[in-house]
């Protein structure tokens, strides 16, 4: 009965919200927005600090923001500070997992199945491919969909594969810690360099190059590689914490 009432209440609230949004003249329907009046237009035209020329893929040079992928331009350049914050969210979450689940002496959790030889060897072969894909996605974040966060998650998923396909496997957690710490610090230090040399925190100090080149967009690929490694090592650390238990 309680669940039923909860369902009714939720449906009622949902109806209220939908009907409110539908009748609100300031809430545009999907696709009806006039983008030219909004901040998004200037992101697409790279026109925040003034740019009169047209942005052409493979030709435009040294735009104010270099990534060909507009989402990356917003996430890692125009609003890079938010990304630093999100990186911190993941950092403190993985720290919390380690704090609550990690002890000093740990061993692998007993699985109630034992992977056979073929699975173990096969997963090692796959591991490299998944890892490479993850790194590729991170490095090409300024050109193609993806970037540091999805790339890092892929790197971690290759570690998860090893953990699941081999019940003896333990990664070197200390290495993850060092990687996590150095990449995080490097991100902040890049930001501080911008403040010191350019006057703005997280300012892009390198040349942006030709839009669409692999070596373009200045700092962005470097930041995305750092984020990829950081996210990868943090989530791998979380996986290790969940698949181990205390005691030797």
């Amino acid at each position: 009965m309680k669940n039923f009432l909860a369902l009714l209440l939720t449906l009622f609230l949902g109806y209220m919200i939908m009907s409110w949004l539908a009748t609100n003249e300031f809430f545009p329907a999907m696709g009806d927005v006039d983008v030219t009046t909004r901040v998004s237009q200037k992101y697409i035209e790279r026109d925040v600090n003034g740019n009169s020329e047209e942005v052409v893929f493979g030709e435009a040079t040294n735009l104010e923001s270099g990534p060909a992928n507009t989402v990356t331009a917003i996430v890692a350049d125009y609003r890079s500070f938010d990304t630093l914050g999100e990186v911190t969210v993941l950092f403190v979450s993985s720290l919390g997992v380690a704090l609550l689940l990690g002890g000093t002496k740990q061993r692998r959790l007993e699985l109630n199945f034992h992977p056979n030889f073929m699975l173990r060897v096969g997963s090692r072969a796959l591991f490299g491919i998944i890892l490479m894909t993850g790194i590729y996605i991170s490095i090409h974040g300024h050109l193609t969909p993806g970037g540091g966060f999805p790339g890092g998650t892929m790197i971690a998923s290759s570690m998860l594969l090893l953990y699941l396909a081999d019940d003896e496997f333990r990664a070197k957690v200390k290495g993850f810690k060092i990687l996590e710490s150095t990449t995080g610090s490097a991100y902040v230090i890049i930001g501080l360099l911008g403040l010191l040399l350019g006057g703005y925190f997280l300012e892009n100090l390198l040349v942006n190059g030709v839009l669409g080149d692999l070596f373009s967009a200045g700092m962005i690929p470097i930041i995305y590689i750092l984020i990829g490694l950081k996210v990868g090592s943090e989530i791998s650390g979380v996986i290790d914490n969940f698949l181990t238990e205390e005691g030797v």
């Binding site: 901040v39 992101y43 600090n49 125009y78 890079s80 006057g199 997280l202």
Partner: peptide
């Protein structure tokens, strides 16, 4: 931050 003026 980042050299881009608000609101961008």
């Amino acid at each position: 931050i980042g050299g881009f003026n608000a609101p961008y």
